[in-house]
Design a protein around this nucleic acid. Structure first.
Lengths: 197, 197, 197, 197
DNA sequence: GATGAATGAGACTTCATTCAT
DNA sequence: GATGAATGAAGTCTCATTCAT
């Protein structure tokens, strides 16, 4: 009795999943519950997703959606470094405000235990494209030290952000993510910026 | 039948655990096997540990043992920053050489999902004591910027190390941990060092 | 990985169970062993049975199988009472000869502690149907006292048999079950038989 | 700190045990609880009792205490058979009224699984002494058939009572124990009584 | 595409019992 | 006599995942 359009089913599963994840967390949400809430079945679930973990990955999409929104406001910032600071601040603010700590933790924990490709690291993400663009601009403006490649800078920045989030989770969100991040990022990037600034 | 000395049993379990973890990894080592190899029983296991995860925590002790060894060679280094670089290089070298990636990953992943206190962050660890000592010396030598507290510097350094390890795991150990770490650390600490250097 | 036919699995577990029960007894047969011998798993076991005790209940089926065999030879007996005596003697003989005392004991002990319906008492059992048939015939022949209902007689007879078995277990099988039973049954049924006999 | 007299401790354990058994049943009363309520310890418990099962045996003492009380009223009955009927009725009445079904069930179930001597069957019990006395009197009055020995009659009677209780447990106490028992006993003993009565 | 009974793995629990102190 | 941490045995449960229909 295939009544609904395939995409509907898939989307309904995702929606219900996140409702439950937000409510009970990743580990405390059996597929059984997801399937029940979405009026589907285990078989259907595994038709659309290859594993429970895969659901977490849909969170990266959430981040990227935020980045797309932020992109428009980016040009208000003067330097490339300011743009990075801006991106960092706004995303981390969003994370602090609307993503349950436990979920974020589950995402990072799960990305670690994941065996194959980790979508957090997928360089085709909007996130990485955005970063590259900013850094390239900055480089052509002589903002960064010339001996460091664009790739290096992007990589370091991304690592910095992952590190901060991951550590914030480890510390159970005991401090303000976006504030501490802002401070540290400034110091951290000293080593990449051109001295004359 | 409580015959053996308590500490022996606990220690035997830990030893056997690590033998198995090294051999087969965390996920592929059922408690069943641990219990069998250590000639104990599940009851005994759960008497000493509250969950399988808890065993991972005993890995921090391994790190600390390494730090104790490194402490003696520390004085060969001139500045506080050099000492930090040395500690970082040597520990990360050890990690690269003798700790299976999967184990390290499991440790970090599990520390994330752990609810209560996380022993990686336990400030009574030898690790933190050592760091504090070095930073305090550096501060009294005017090596660090005066507006940053000892605690801030230690925290940032520890975060840096966790971040690097965690990211190295995320990337499946695709690069050399201690080399990349050395590079980044130098840049990162620019923001904490006194300009006149 | 659901590959085998459901019934096969369930039946295989039962078969292996009884092999082990006969060999080692109920208490000395961990589920672990049953599962191993039947090449299944605990999960599978608990999918088919709600508890280890439930396996004992399958013994009643064994009794009923015997009753089916006995039914054919029943007509050689003249009176209803003789038929009952015959059934009793033959089943008890079988029990004495081929069912380990410990198993029988476990069955009765477990039927007692069972909370819900007890299959020993299930009136749909072949056992009860057979008894009813015999008693009804006897009644129509005027063999039993007219003031006692068929149900009463069947109930008393069944109680008598359970009592004998249960007591035989209690006494560790120290006497001959079928002989003692024969004696007592004769006396016991005086109260139900028509005086004129 | 041995403050209390040994017997006090033992008795306190028994008292608390029965309070808990009555409340939660045998299986749902861990020794832990008994020990806690009686302010003793597991070690102490096992000093006085060799196993948890042993506590159930103290129930037989309860029965015997009742029999002692009944003995005085025994002489109001005319015949030996009447005395047996009286004993049976009164004890069963007491059981129905004041012993929780679950406990009785636990007692019988446990007596079955018990390996060694079962105190229900202990012929030195007041119960058996009383029965013997009554039957001997009855025999000398010619009340019983001469071809059956005293021992046989006592054994049959005791078996009858055990059977009734045990079956009543099996049936979850769905009928009145003392009433049904009275009916059946009368019929059952036809086979033992002298015809001329 | 959809289903859910069946499966396998293994974590975790509960307890009676023991014995060094 | 008294203690309770330690032990061992096994039962039970929770789930992700698969596949015959």
């Amino acid at each position: 009795m295939p009544r609904k359009k395939p995409d509907d089913t898939r989307q309904k599963i995702i929606t219900c999943t996140w409702e439950l994840f937000y409510q009970n967390g990743f580990d405390n949400t059996p597929i059984e519950d997801i399937v029940e809430r979405s009026n589907t079945s285990k078989g259907t679930f595994y038709h659309y997703f290859s594993a429970k973990n895969e659901l977490l990955s849909t969170l990266a999409a959430l981040f990227d959606a935020e980045y797309e929104k932020l992109e428009d406001r980016l040009n208000e910032e003067k330097s490339a470094f300011d743009k990075l600071l801006f991106l960092n601040r706004e995303l981390f603010r969003m994370i602090e405000n609307s993503i349950p700590l436990e979920l974020l933790t589950a995402l990072y924990s799960s990305q670690l235990s994941l065996k194959g490709d980790k979508n957090l690291l997928d360089h085709d993400r909007i996130y990485y494209k955005l970063l590259r663009k900013i850094v390239i601009e900055g480089k052509s403006d002589g903002e960064f030290q010339p001996d460091v490649s664009t790739t290096e800078i992007v990589k370091a920045y991304a690592l910095f952000e992952r590190a901060l989030i991951s550590d914030w989770c480890l510390c159970n969100g005991e401090y303000s993510l976006h504030k501490y991040s802002g401070e540290l990022l400034t110091r951290f990037f000293q080593g990449f910026l051109n001295k004359e600034c």
